[in-house]
Design a protein around this nucleic acid. Sequence first.
DNA 1: CGGGTGACTTTAC
DNA 2: CGTAAAGCCACCC
Length: 112
Amino acid sequence: MNDRLDFQERVINYVKNIPWGKVSTYGRIARACGMPSAARHVGYVMNRCRDRDDVPCHRVVNRNGYLTGRLHFDTPGTMEERLSGEGIEFDNIGNDMIKVDLDRYLWEADSE
DNA sequence: CGGGTGACTTTAC
DNA sequence: CGTAAAGCCACCC
């Protein structure tokens, strides 16, 4: 891999490679970038890139599949709308938290 | 250069 | 099962 790139550059590159209709998790991305303990920073990088239309940050969810970052988008419904537009269904929990089925939508780069 | 931050994760109760 | 606290460490100011 390109060790020359910074951690956030790898995160951005990884997120950009997430296929349509799939999602990934912070922990997996961090581990894929060689920083398994830097899961928090993945979200941090997303926050910096949430204004970039070339980074599908809405396809990144937490370890449980919850859209924890939806409130950080321009509007609280942006993440939900985009994922819904990609054919992803949500698990209705009844609370404010929205969840996706990782067993169906999680993109595992290692299995390509 | 040092401190504060946080879109996570794990462990403990 | 649920909530609470601690650990984690790159990035920004």
